[in-house]
């Protein structure tokens, strides 16, 4: 059994070398296909990552009527925390808001001007609750709920940004999926042709194998290996290229667009490639297998 497997593998490799022109064309197409896939994956994954980051950093801020006591607000906080779309919320009292304000705008502690205000907090009506969402797509539900609560005076949210960004990343995924599908079909077609040439070249050998009593699996094995080898090579190349490019592009963006540094938080290389590598390899092998298998089923029957 193992001997037979080696036989198939040896023959398969030999075939790849024998029709190198067609093999190269097939490898090239798969490389292009998976390269584009990889680029889009990196973009979409990073996009989603950044949106997620942005969303967890930006919550809804709820302000209250001055008639509300701190106790009432904390009760409301408990109710809001129980909502499924809420991750957590933070209460900031009017005094804390004043402290924050001072710290932010007068970090040197210019006590002279400010000291007089401490007992007469200018932000007396600024006690607020910042709600962080676990699921931003349900932000509008939560806003409707909070608006319905007594004692709420104002809600600040950034809903529009979140929605349009999600739409954009969805558009990118659809477009990339379309391109990848077309390229995958082209790749399958090319592999099918490559294998077809192999079959034609080895027509005599196949005929003899059949007379000797070779099984379908035995005759087809080398061609399947050929297709899958092409697929494998075609998937390793783009992964290597992307790996080399990724850190460079990230570095380039961060050094040349310093303004965006706060918005652009890129995913770690290892996080991207932990998914990209297995998916690319599986896709390459799958395309290779399919391309050769479909041809064999049509043309090589014992």
């Amino acid at each position: 059994m193992i001997g037979r497997m080696f036989f198939a593998i040896r023959q398969g490799f030999r075939n790849v070398g024998r029709n190198h022109l067609f093999s190269l064309a097939s490898i090239g197409t798969i490389t292009a296909c998976l390269f584009i896939f990889g680029i889009f994956y990196c973009i979409v994954a990073n996009f989603n990552y950044m949106i997620d980051k942005a969303q967890t950093n930006v919550g809804i801020t709820v302000f209250f009527d001055t008639s509300m006591t701190e106790e009432q607000i904390l009760q409301m906080k408990d109710a809001i925390d129980l909502r499924p779309e809420v991750e957590h919320s933070e209460y900031t009292s009017a005094d804390e808001a004043w402290e924050d304000f001072k710290e932010q705008y007068f970090p040197d502690g210019d006590e002279g001007i400010l000291a007089g205000l401490d007992n007469d907090n200018p932000l007396y009506d600024c006690a607020n609750l910042t709600v962080y969402l676990a699921d931003t797509s349900r932000q509008s539900d939560l806003i409707a709920y909070i608006e319905g609560l007594d004692g709420v005076s104002e809600i600040n949210s950034s809903g529009i940004i979140a929605d349009s960004v999600t739409d954009f990343s969805r558009l990118i995924s659809y477009v990339s999926m379309g391109i990848i599908l077309i390229l995958a079909l082209v790749a399958i077609f090319l592999i099918s042709n490559t294998v077809m040439i192999g079959i034609t070249v080895r027509k005599d050998e196949i005929a003899i194998m059949k007379y000797i009593g070779a099984t379908d699996v035995f005759v087809r094995g080398p061609f399947i290996i050929e297709g899958m080898t092409i697929g494998l090579i075609g998937s390793v190349i783009p992964v290597v290229i992307l790996r080399l490019l990724y850190t460079r592009v990230v570095d380039f963006t961060l050094t040349h667009f310093t303004i965006l540094r706060n918005v652009l938080t890129f995913m770690d290389v290892s996080d991207i490639f932990r998914i990209l590598i297995p998916v690319s390899l599986a896709a390459g092998l799958g395309i290779g297998f399919l391309g050769s298998y479909l041809t064999l089923r049509k043309h090589v029957r014992v």
């Binding site: 005599d204 050998e205 005929a207 003899i208 059949k210 007379y211 000797i212 009593g213 070779a214 099984t215 379908d216 035995f218 029957r301 014992v302």
Partner: peptide, 22 residues
């Protein structure tokens, strides 16, 4: 059955006019 054809052919040795060596 189609699957069993190879086994059956192993019971028959074949020689051709044109030798058909690889």
């Amino acid at each position: 059955r189609r699957r069993k054809i190879p086994k059956m052919r192993r019971g028959i040795g074949v020689v051709f006019q044109d030798f058909r060596l690889l």
